[in-house]
Design a protein around this nucleic acid. Structure first.
Length: 502
RNA sequence: GGUGACGUGGCCGAGUGGCUAGGCAGAGGUCUGCAAAACCUCGUACGGCGGUUCGAAUCCGCCCGUCACCUCCA
């Protein structure tokens, strides 16, 4: 592996840009918080997941091995909560009672359904599969064991309603978020749910006793369910060890979730937990926070699905490109204007692939003229990624590379090989135009089939063009356009595609 | 009230004292029946006010504004 600059990332723990230095050199162990599967994941969720994906891709590009763990939370979080004291209704139980939830026999079915949906969306956006995707419900025993140990060590105590983590016993509480003082919390929270038996209002639940709850397990503390922070401590340490390199998630998780994870984990082991914490900022859509009531709330399938299923038929790679067009740690405004630009750019990359294939097949034996320039483009792309995942810069370097290629009239075989290699490397890093996560879109049920009417119109237009009846040909093209079919003429004959609905 | 991020041309953004990044969009042109694609050409911006300096987007101060977290959320 050629030498490269350090892999810099913004560490929330120190507030600084720092080189990522795995404990075992060239072997990165990272954990990324996944979603609670009570509904379809939305594009904001995926902005965060893509950040993790890009870290993995960048690490592999510089020759590191990566063990990448990302969980699925299939135990309900609670809708109304103080810092962590379960006071409200279980989110998944609530989903089950909603209109969409009626189709599910029980909360486990619901969780399974949305977990499967998450996996499919994950694949469609070309995110790499985690090496381990643990589920909270499959790690209940380990969570109970961790709680018992925390009690033993004096970091947790039991009340009539719950087992709480004793924040006062962990001096460094607040080191991630800056929320150190109990009074800060009390001043800000309006309708705080206070268990009179809690020693400190910052204390958070490790186990909630509740034998009425939809999801409940037996434990030494009585029937109930785990608090919502303990699962990530347990699962990350099980698959990555007590002290690992990087932990990521959305910015909202800084507090309380990750703050509590640190307290539990370090309280448990006495060792530092994760060295680097990387948080992705929230996405805005058309300048506003995503919300269903504002009508700017989108799931992956809303954008990429077929029109017949209420989707917009947008190239998934364009969605991916749009989501990484801003750097992960800066606020980013996702707009349909950007998305529509991204469709063009993704298609440009995909067109370059065809050019390369053509060159490999029919290129002449002239010497390569592109390799060096493309190597330099790739290097700029990689260096941009190593500099705190500077995706806008990385993308611009990649687009410049594509321009170098489309400038050529034809490609020699030698050049085509270089182009192919460049495309593969660039795609391995950014994942922007070709599936490399094992997903095969051909096996998916797309509805991109043409009605016989469309077939006939395409033929009729060709006939009109052949007869030089261009007025008629354009008329048919307009008609097809109205039907959502875009026709383009090329030297090799007309091509068509179903337009995205933006 | 506390904590943190951030304000560069239509958009995403490089840039840490002087040498007009880059990409995308847009405009004009070439080409093709037209359209699309492709190619060529075109952009002097840095929230405001002071200060430091020969010189500031870049350093200092104040102000203004945006966003987020502290409450379920990626």
């Amino acid at each position: 592996m050629a030498s490269h600059p350090p892999f810099l990332l913004q560490n929330t723990l120190t507030g600084k840009l720092e080189p990522l230095e795995p404990q075992d050199s060239n072997f990165l162990r990272m954990y990324s918080c996944g979603p609670t599967v009570y509904s379809y994941a939305h594009i904001g969720n995926f902005r965060t997941f893509i950040t993790s994906d890009l870290i993995v891709r960048t690490a592999r590009a510089i020759g590191w091995d990566v063990r990448y763990v990302s969980n699925i939370t299939d135990v309900g979080h609670l809708t109304e909560d103080d810092v962590a004291d379960a006071g409200g209704e279980d989110k998944m139980a609530k989903a089950l009672k909603s209109k969409e939830g009626e189709q599910f026999a029980n909360v486990y079915d619901l969780a399974r359904y949305y977990a499967d949906a998450l996996n499919l969306d994950w694949q469609i956006l070309n995110l790499l599969e985690p090496d381990v995707r643990p589920r909270a419900t499959e790690h209940i025993t380990q969570q109970i064991e961790a709680i018992e140990k925390l009690i033993e060590k004096g970091h947790a105590y039991e009340t009539a309603d719950a087992v709480y983590f004793d924040v006062g016993s962990f001096k460094e509480y607040g080191k991630l978020s800056g929320n150190r003082e109990a009074n800060q919390l009390e001043e800000s929270v309006r309708d705080i749910v206070v268990d009179p038996n809690k020693r400190d209002s910052r204390d958070f639940a490790l186990w909630k006793k509740d034998d009425k709850h939809l999801m409940q397990w037996y434990s030494p503390f009585g029937r109930g369910f785990p608090g919502w922070h303990i699962e990530c401590s347990v699962m990350s340490m099980q698959y990555l060890g007590e002290h690992f390199d990087l932990h990521g998630g959305g910015e909202d998780l800084i507090f309380p979730h990750h703050e509590c994870e640190i307290a539990q984990s370090e309280g448990l082991t006495g060792k530092p937990f994760a060295d680097m914490w990387v948080h992705t900022r929230f996405l805005q859509v058309e300048g506003a926070k995503m919300s269903k009531s504002k009508g700017n709330f989108f799931t992956v399938r809303d954008l990429t699905g077929p029109e017949s299923k209420g989707g917009r038929n947008i190239n998934p790679f364009a969605v991916r490109l749009a989501l990484i067009s801003g750097q992960y740690r800066k606020p980013y405004n996702f707009t349909f204007k950007t998305l529509s630009d991204c469709i063009q750019n993704v298609e440009r990359f995909q067109a370059v692939e065809k050019v390369a294939e053509e060159g490999l097949k029919n290129g002449d034996d002239a010497p390569d003229t592109l390799g060096d320039a493309l190597d330099s483009c790739y290097e700029r792309t990689l260096h941009a990624m190593l500099d705190d995942l500077n995706t806008p810069l990385a993308i611009s370097a990649a687009l410049e590379g594509s321009k170098l290629i489309t400038k050529q009239e034809t490609l020699s075989k030698a050049s085509a090989e270089k182009v192919k290699a460049w495309l593969d490397k660039t795609n391995a890093l950014l994942g922007l135009f070709k599936y490399d996560n094992g997903y095969n879109p051909a096996t998916a049920t797309t509805e991109d089939t043409l009605s016989t009417k469309v077939e006939h119109l395409l033929e009729a237009r060709q006939a009109a063009r052949n007869a030089r009846d261009y007025a008629r040909a354009d008329e048919i093209r307009d008609e097809l356009d109205q039907m959502g079919i875009e026709v383009k003429d090329t030297p090799n004959g007309p091509t068509w595609k179903k337009k995205a609905k933006i």
